[in-house]
Design a binder for these strands. Sequence first.
RNA 1: GCCGAUGUAGCUCAGCUGGCCAGAGCAGCUGAUUUGUAAUCAGCUGGUCGGGGGUUCGAAUCCCUCCAUCGGCUCCA
Length: 646
Amino acid sequence: MINITLPDNSIRQYESGATPLDIAKSISEGLARNVLSAKVNGELWDATRPIHHDALLKLLTWNDDEGKATMWHSSAHLMAEAIEYFYPGVKFGIGPHIDNGFYYDIDLGEQTISADDLPKIEEKILELARQKQSFIRKEVSKTEAISYFTNKGDEYKLELLNDLTDGQITFYESGNFVDLCRGPHIPDTSPIKAVKLLNIAGAYWRGDEKRKQMTRIYGISFPKQKELSEYLVLLEEAKKRDHRKLGKELELFTFSAKVGLGLPLWLPKGTALRERLEAFLKKDQKKAGYVQVMTPHIANKELYITSGHYAKYGKDSFQPISTPVEGEQFMLKPMNCPHHCEIYSWKPRSYKDLPVRIAEFGTVYRYEQSGELHGLTRVRGFTQDDAHIFCRPDQVKDEFIGVLNIVKHIFRALDFKEFTTQISLRDPNNREKYIGSDENWEKAESAILEVAKEQELQNVVIEYGEAAFYGPKMDFMVKDALGRKWQLGTIQVDYNLPERFELEYTGSDNQKHRPVMIHRAPFGSMERFVAVLLEHCAGKFPLWLTPEQAIVLPISEKYHDYAKKVLDLLNNYDIRAQIDERNEKTGKKIRDAELQKIPYMLIVGEKEEAENTVSVRKQSEGDQGTCSVEAFAATINDEIKKLLEE
RNA sequence: GCCGAUGUAGCUCAGCUGGCCAGAGCAGCUGAUUUGUAAUCAGCUGGUCGGGGGUUCGAAUCCCUCCAUCGGCUCCA
C-alpha cells in the first residue's frame, strides 16, 4: 500500500501501482473525467502512469495552467500525426506547449504548407481526436531510440537524443505517431474537442540563425467549442486594440518611410499625451528627491569605450559619426547611463550627498534589426523615463522602496490592476561570471527580497541566474484588460559602471568609496508604455490623460456663441475641450465623438442656452442629464483627483 | 538579418483565370439643409494600382528585382 497526500492534506491509501486516474475515480467519476495529468511530488506525471511510492499528489484539469499545458502538448502530437498523414516523410523538430496553445517545428523537405492547408489539418486533428487514441508512455534505451529515428530518417530527433541520458528516455505513442517526449500527456485524445491552427511561420532549428529554418505551425485547442469561439473573439478584440491601428485612428503617432524605419513621429495629440505622462512622473520624482537633467543626443565614442558598450554593441549599433577632425567620432546615444555617470562625477560627492538621483527623459537610438521593428513597442529611437540613483550599499533597500512606490502609483493611476514582479538574481552555481563584490551582491539581493516581502508584493517570481552580469534586478509585468502580460518598468543594480567610470564618494571615514548605481525606468520607455496603455484601455484613456476630455456639440449654428461661452468656462476650469462647429446633425457629431473616444459630450441647444446649462453625454454610456457647466467641471475634476490619488 | 504572406485614392477594401477611360464606402471640397443623443441629401475632387525592370499587340493582373508592411525566428545595453 502507498500513502497519497492530496492538496487538502488528506491522506488516502492505495495499492502500489495505482494511477492518478484511479485515485481520481476513487474520489469522483466527474473528477476522473476531467483529469488531464497530475503532479506527483512536484513532478509532472501522466494520469495513467502508476505510482509505486508514497507521494504528494495534485490532479490537474483544464482549470490548471499545467493541465492546459498537458492538453496543448498532446494536441501538438496530434497535429504532427495529422501532418504526417498529409505530408509523409516530413521530419519533426520540437513541439511544445506555449502560454496560449502549442506549436510544432517541421522540416517539410521539398513539400510546402500554406495557410490554406490549415483547415484540412484541423479537420484531420479532430478526426484523430475523436478516435480516442491513448497516449502510451514507453521507456526506451538510448540505442533503441537512436535506431528508431535513424530508421525514420529524422536527424532532428537524433540530435535531441544526443543530449539525453540513457535510462531517462521516453517515447509516447498515440495512433500512428511515435515521438521522443518527456511527457506528460493526457490519458487519451477525447478531451480535444476544438482546434484552431493560428499561423504558420519560419523558425530556426534550436533558435540558431545559422541553422536550418523550419516551418513552425502554431495552434490552440480546447475541450469545448464554445471556449475556442471565445478565444477567437478575444483575438479579434486584441486586433481591434492594436496600438498601431488606434494610434492612427486617434491621431497619436505615425511613421514615415522617408524619415526612417522605426522612428516614430509623434502627432500633436500623441505629444500632448506623452507630455502629460511625463509631467505625472516628474511630479512624483520631484517629491521623491530626484533632480532632472538633460544630456545631448550624441556623445564622443570614447564615452562608450569607457562604459564598455562599444566593445559589446558597437558593431550592431548606428555607426559612429565622423567630424571634420581626423579620427574624431561621435555616436548616437544608445543609453543615458554613461552621461549620468559623468554628471555624478562632475563634483566631489560626500556620503552626506547620497543618494544622488539623476533623472532624464532621455531619447536613445538603437539599431534594431529591421525584421524586429514593431509599432511603438520595438523602435530605433525612443525615450526612456530614465534615472540613475547613486547610493551607498546600505541605501539600496530604501531606494528600491522609493522606486516601487512610484511604479505602484503609476499602475494605479493608469488602471493596471494586476502586476507581477520578477526578481532576477545570480546563478548560485556560477558566481564567477558576475562583477562586483560578493558582499555587495549579498546585500543587494537580500535587500530586493526583503522589499518584495515587506511591501507585500503579489505574484513575485524569483529567477536564479537571470541577473545581468553587473547586478540583480526587479522587473514589473502588467496584465492588461485582455489578460495579456507586458513587461514595463525595471529597477536594476549596477556594480559595473561605477567601476568603469571610477565613481566615488568620501565616506564618514574620510576614505574614498564606490557608490552603487541603480538604473530605473518605471514606464520603461514612453513609446512602449503608450503602446501598452493604448492596448490596455482600447484608446479610452483615463480622464486625466486623454487628449480631449470633452467636446461641445451645438445643435445648430444658432448656438455657436453659447458653445463658445461654455468652452471658455471649461478652459477656466482646466478642462481640455473643443467645439464641433461642423454643419452636421447632432447624431453625426455624437457618433464621431464616440469614435474619437472623447469621454464627455456636451450638447447645447435652445434649452441649455436659456438655462445656462449643458446636456451631458458620457462616452459609451449615453445621456447623463443636464447640469450647469460649473457642476460638470466640478464633477470631472473630482473624478480626476480620485484617479490620481496616492 | 532569415522564412512566409501582403502592398490598388488620406482611410477600409473590390477588381487580379491579362483586353472597354481602374471601382465602392468613408474622409475632403462645393451647395442645399439649421438639425436634440451613434451616419441629412446632392454634386465634385482625388490613384504613374509600392519603386524599377521584363514577357506581351496589350499588364493592377504573369515573371524578376528592390523597398515597405504583417506573422514568426534570431536579437534586445
